[in-house]
Write a protein that binds this DNA or RNA. Sequence first.
DNA 1: GTGAAAGCGCTAACAT
DNA 2: ATGTTAGCGCTTTCAC
Lengths: 338, 338
Amino acid sequence: MFEPFTLKDIAKALGLSTSTVSRALRDTHEISPQTKKIVLEYAQKINYRPNPIALSLKERRSKSIGVSLSEVANPYFSRVINGIESIAYDRGYHVIITQTHESYEREKINIEHLASRSVDGLLVSLSAETSDTSYLQNLHQRGLPIVFFDRVAKEIETHKIIANNEKGAFEATEHLIQQGCRRIAHLTSSDHLSISVERLNGYKQALAKYQVPFDETYVKYCAHGGMSQQETEIAIKELMNLKQKPDGIFVASDRLSIGCLVVFKELKIKVPEEMRITGFCNSDVLDLMSPTLTSVCQPAFEMGRLATDMLLNLIESKYPVHDFEKKILDTSLFVRNN
Amino acid sequence: MFEPFTLKDIAKALGLSTSTVSRALRDTHEISPQTKKIVLEYAQKINYRPNPIALSLKERRSKSIGVSLSEVANPYFSRVINGIESIAYDRGYHVIITQTHESYEREKINIEHLASRSVDGLLVSLSAETSDTSYLQNLHQRGLPIVFFDRVAKEIETHKIIANNEKGAFEATEHLIQQGCRRIAHLTSSDHLSISVERLNGYKQALAKYQVPFDETYVKYCAHGGMSQQETEIAIKELMNLKQKPDGIFVASDRLSIGCLVVFKELKIKVPEEMRITGFCNSDVLDLMSPTLTSVCQPAFEMGRLATDMLLNLIESKYPVHDFEKKILDTSLFVRNN
DNA sequence: GTGAAAGCGCTAACAT
DNA sequence: ATGTTAGCGCTTTCAC
């Protein structure tokens, strides 16, 4: 059995009381220098570490934050995680990451688990399946600090960090138009996600600016965010079976962008000759792919940093916060395939 | 402030004692059906959740396991994580993931943090920089259950799950030989990692079998596992500056394999015409890359599952375990580029 | 300057 | 069948 040393062990060994030992270790001025020295040396010797669980119980906070996101394998999210850790780590917080794999059920279980496990706050990017956020509202109303990033819940009033999805989508679509595309399809995640709505808007705005008519049949939603490749495949095939095939596709996410390239490879449709693709994508190997795509890249690391900073500020705030911010960070367009 | 409901709240509201409430909630037979019903209904109503921190303190275990690995962005590790979660989740354990980014310092801090945070056990894959594992030995000796996967510490006696690195490396090297390569270089991670040693062995064995002489100058180590692309670049350039340039490279890891493709692209050296590459690599987009490489794929998910199963068995074992297993799982060779 | 005691939320041995 | 109490490891009044 793994039995770490406790204050009691030290107190017994040194013939002191636990409170004296506790005070000595935290360098209170009311303890004599000799006692301090003895205690410190002994603690050092046995490599004493205070039990954080006992501390948590006492302080009623765990110095840890929970994160809920789709999947760590997604390059966007793995960078966000690095951003989160870069801040949390410095400020003495643990980070507990949970994956939804785009499932609402899983998300709800994970988050309620995290909350009951007494994380001090939550960083959340909603799953593709999630439309009902009442369980989150519940926790939030009861005072649990939450910061949303990327996929936010508009019905919950708190800090939110998002990319400038509209602008990013606008630029990606505009790029296709400038390349000569006129029948531009849009492949996206589930329709209730905030990012889907925002990116659809940007897409529409670009079409409007260049007087390309918007056509509902060119928009394909993937309710599970393309978690199964089949979902992507079906969507693409439907597009390719239209009497007026699209000549370009603007794809709304990392997973779908890659899935899209796979499908076109299988279908032996040449990219970009027969089909131009631009998409939100943060993969670091896009330059190695052939064919590849023009990508909209999000400032993932920075989003993680910012979200965490804001969350920790909420957690450590002495007064209830009612003034919430929505930070919108710019994306970058990487033109490839020309 | 987020103040979850406690047993005391329920007890007060219902005019009962906390112990009665506790027993009612855990369905002890000594509580009358009516009382149970009243308590259960009230708990349901206020959505009561026991405080796991208090439970941990009492039971002296946290029902959570810690994981230390290089980085979640690595496709090998992100799959391992999915394997870990698939088991831990079912058996009621939380998973706390920490990244070393191949730094020894970071690894040590993370793991000591995890241990002091009272995880019930540890799943560890060593960082590229780690050669001194005394801090781990320390924890292990004091009874903390540890299971190693992938990059194991030979000096610590416990369960270990690894891929058949020798065989995988042998097959990869053999493939190069069969493709006609005779001057086969080996690009690998730091020399003290178990995987480096094993993969080097497999490489040597393949050379020996086909009477290709082993040449030390063809082996390049990256002490930081290619964490900075520069490291990879320098290694490759050194190889390409040899009077007898290699005609093939066997690469020992995911990160290095991708890094290698990047460098050759930059150098405008044609793969596979001028240089054949095979490497350990678990990326799911290798088929989209051009040029691409023949890859050795590890059963990452299964390794995560197995390691977790063994760790939880250690944790839950009533008796001290002295009989440790080393499981070796087969890799698969995916031939591409022919 | 040091010790005794209470309390964080929970369970379990020990009353009644 | 229910209540009282002690204790998990720690900090923090309150005594002396």
